[in-house]
């Protein structure tokens, strides 16, 4: 079992030590990205946080909360505009009270773009200093399996992983790998093993290393270099790859920086 885990306190033990700069609304995604690139943290673009109604208000808040509290996250800075439907201040305050390594920064209270970027960089660096990496061995990795296509090996693979003490969660209901990834993130998967549809490319998810397994489709065979595991890799090779990735080896999606997030949405935007 891997000894290269990181103790992330209340979030649990993670296989990565990512600081997350979380935009609470689409309007703060660009500023979040600038802060993240200045301090070596992770951020991502999304189009949510405003103009949402009905079930999506709670849905998006829970989703952002789950991202901020994922075990692979060391600390989190929420960047809010201030006037969005999801009030960044409240989301920030709630998540900060749940976990001391979460802070928030509000653009409309910070004096503009550059002031927010500067203050955000300071806050992110302060978090990094306050919460340095703490190595921890751990015994129960959870592997999320994105099954956008059937794999004959899946039962055997799950049994094999179980034998070495790895828990598995399977997501197969989503319309796409992106939707399954979101489900697996909510279930706190440490690593994702993805079997994309034959007509879909290899893909990734910020925060969680994604191991892509190729099919024999012409698309996948045309871009085999984007896949970590070839079509019909053995169970042993697959398990060994999962262990290597859990033990800090980067996946191809991580090396390429591939990883978008599909946040849930049930109702059209207003």
């Amino acid at each position: 079992m891997t000894s290269n885990g990181f103790d992330h306190g209340k979030r649990g033990i993670g296989v990565r030590n990512h600081q997350l700069i979380l935009p609470s609304v689409v309007c703060s995604t660009h500023i979040s990205r600038r802060i993240a690139s200045a301090v070596g943290a992770l951020s991502f673009s999304h189009q949510h946080g405003c103009g949402i109604i009905g079930a999506d208000v709670a849905g998006i808040e829970d989703f952002f909360g789950a991202l901020a509290n994922h075990p692979n996250v060391s600390s989190c800075l929420i960047v809010s505009l201030g006037c969005e439907t999801i009030q960044g201040q409240e989301l920030g305050a709630r998540l900060a009270s749940a976990n001391v390594s979460t802070k928030y920064q509000i653009i409309q209270d910070s004096g503009g773009v550059e002031a927010t970027v500067s203050a955000g960089i300071l806050a992110a660096r302060h978090l990094q200093e306050s919460y340095p990496p703490v190595k921890a061995a751990f015994g129960n990795i959870t592997v999320g399996i994105d099954l956008c296509r059937e794999s004959a090996q899946i039962a055997e693979l799950i049994a094999g992983l179980s034998e070495v003490g790895v828990e598995t969660i399977v997501a197969r209901q989503g319309k796409s790998s992106a939707e399954n990834f979101s489900q697996l993130m909510l279930a706190k998967a440490h690593v994702i093993l993805s079997f994309p549809s034959p007509d879909q490319p290899a893909s990734g998810f910020p925060l969680i290393p994604v191991i892509n397994v190729a099919s024999e489709s012409s698309l996948h065979q045309g871009i085999v270099a984007d896949f970590d595991l070839a079509h019909e890799s053995t169970i042993e090779a697959t398990i060994s790859r999962i262990m290597e990735v859990a033990d800090a080896q980067a996946t191809i999606a991580e090396m390429n920086g591939t990883g978008e997030i599909l946040a849930p949405r049930l109702v059209r935007s207003t």
Partner: peptide, 20 residues
């Protein structure tokens, strides 16, 4: 400041449900 964002306007849901 180089500030630019993008969002697709959708009429339909992007997920099956919150319980999927």
């Amino acid at each position: 400041s180089g500030n630019h964002e993008f969002a697709l306007s959708r009429m339909y849901k992007t997920i099956v449900s919150y319980d999927a």
